[in-house]
Nucleic acid binder design. Structure first.
Length: 221
DNA sequence: GCGACAG
DNA sequence: ATCTTGTCGC
C-alpha cells in the first residue's frame, strides 16, 4: 500500500512529545469507515542482534472469516529505545516498511499496544492510524494507564478504562479464564465498534487472530 | 519527591 | 520485547 512520507523521526523524548502533542488533535474516535470491512490486519514486532535490528510482521486476513490473505516481513535498524509512552517511535518505522509491499489494503489494523489509552492520547495504534489515515484499534496485553473495576469471567464482558475522568478504553475478556486485554480506539473508530471487532477477531484465543498470525510469522525463524 | 510504566 | 525447562491441565 501507498505510504506517505511521515514526519521526521525524533531522536529525543522531548522531540517525540512535541510530535505527540501535534498529532493527538488529528485522532478521530468516531466510526469513519469508507467501505464495508473486508480485510483486517495485524502487526507484530520482534528484535534481533541485541535489539539493534527491528523486525516487523504484517498479516492481512479476510473478514469475517479470518483467512490469511497476505503477509510480509520487514527489517530495519532500531532507532529508538523502548520507553513507556513512546513505543510508537520505536516500532512504527519498521511497521511502515512492512506495510509498504502489502497489496491488499486493510480496512482496519489491530495494533499490539494502546490506542488513545495513553498519557497524551497517542499510543501506537492512534499514531499509526493518523499516519496512514486508516481505522486502527489498540489491543494491549497489559495496562499502561488508567483504572477499572473488576470484570466478570465471561467472554465479552468488559469494564471502562478511566483516566482523568475520561473513558479512554475498555478492559475486555476475550475468553473465559484468561487475563483481559486492553482495547482502545486507535483512529477513525469508536470504542464500542472497536470492542465489537476485537471480539469478532477473537474466535478461539485470548488475542486476535490477526496478531496471532503476525506473531507466528515473526517468530517462525 | 515517590511509584508506575504498552512492547 | 527477550532470555529459557519443566510442568500443570484439558
Amino acid at each position: 500500500m501507498q505510504i506517505y512520507q511521515p514526519h521526521p523521526w525524533p531522536l529525543t523524548v522531548e522531540e517525540a512529545i512535541t510530535i505527540q502533542e501535534e498529532l493527538r488533535h488529528q485522532v478521530i474516535t468516531q466510526d469513519q469507515f469508507t467501505q464495508p470491512v473486508q480485510y483486517v490486519a495485524g502487526v507484530d514486532m520482534g528484535f534481533e542482534a541485541d535489539g539493534t535490528i527491528s523486525r516487523a510482521a504484517v498479516a492481512v486476513l479476510s473478514f469475517p472469516d479470518l483467512q490469511v490473505i497476505e503477509t510480509n516481513l520487514a527489517y530495519r535498524p532500531t532507532s529508538f529505545p523502548y520507553i513507556p509512552g513512546f513505543l510508537s517511535f520505536r516500532e512504527i518505522p519498521a511497521v511502515l516498511d512492512a506495510l509498504e509491499k502489502i497489496q491488499t489494503k486493510p480496512d482496519i489494523i489491530l495494533c499490539d499496544g494502546q490506542g488513545i489509552a495513553h498519557p497524551r492520547r497517542l499510543g501506537i495504534a492512534s499514531h499509526l492510524g493518523v499516519l496512514l489515515n486508516i481505522p486502527t484499534i489498540g489491543v494491549a496485553k497489559s495496562l499502561l494507564i488508567g483504572k477499572h473495576e473488576e470484570l466478570a469471567d465471561t467472554k465479552g464482558s468488559w469494564q471502562p478504562l478511566i483516566h482523568r475522568g475520561e473513558i479512554i478504553g475498555a478492559v475486555l475478556r476475550t475468553r473465559v479464564g484468561v487475563k483481559p486485554v486492553y482495547v482502545s480506539s486507535g483512529h477513525k473508530i469508536s470504542l464500542s465498534t472497536a470492542i465489537d471487532y476485537v471480539l469478532r477477531c477473537t474466535p478461539k484465543y485470548r488475542l486476535p487472530e490477526t496478531t496471532r498470525v503476525a506473531d507466528k510469522l515473526a517468530s517462525n525463524r
